[in-house]
Amino acid sequence: MIFYGTALLAGCLFIGMAIGQLIGSALGVDSDIGGVGIAMLLLIGTTTWLSRRGLWSPTHGTGVQYWGDVYIPIVVAMAASQNVRGALVGGGLAFAAGSASVVVAFATVALLIRRFGRHSVTQAGGELR
């Protein structure tokens, strides 16, 4: 049944968020730590485990795939419901702080990718550990 996939996805998301929330409160933070990432690992883990035991059919996968495919429209809806006006009129300090952070972050990404992240380099140079 297609819905089994969706139900598994929903279960993984909720458990992942719950674990993230627990990690957060254990560390005294009012925010979840890595909930979505943990949910992703749970989803990868459970679907791999189920298919190794022959309990996962491609039909179930459709119920996950659908949500994976609609994320671009969902991201468009997210972009459309952001407080973009707030970002634009937040004043010079907010704009300068936000842009400075983006500039240094892109520079950092460029450096890190040059060091670690090139597919060809990592494969040829044998840096994969």
């Binding site: 979505v36 989803l43 949500w67 969902i74 809806a77 972009a79 952001q82």
Partner: peptide
């Protein structure tokens, strides 16, 4: 809330809210 401040587009806020966003993003890990 961007376009979601107009009643006609209120649903866009739900669609682009944290719940659907996280569900869809986790699904991309499949």
């Amino acid at each position: 809330k961007g376009v979601a401040d107009l009643p006609l587009f209120a649903g866009v806020g739900v669609m682009g809210g944290a719940m659907f966003r996280d569900l869809a993003i986790v699904a991309t890990a499949y």
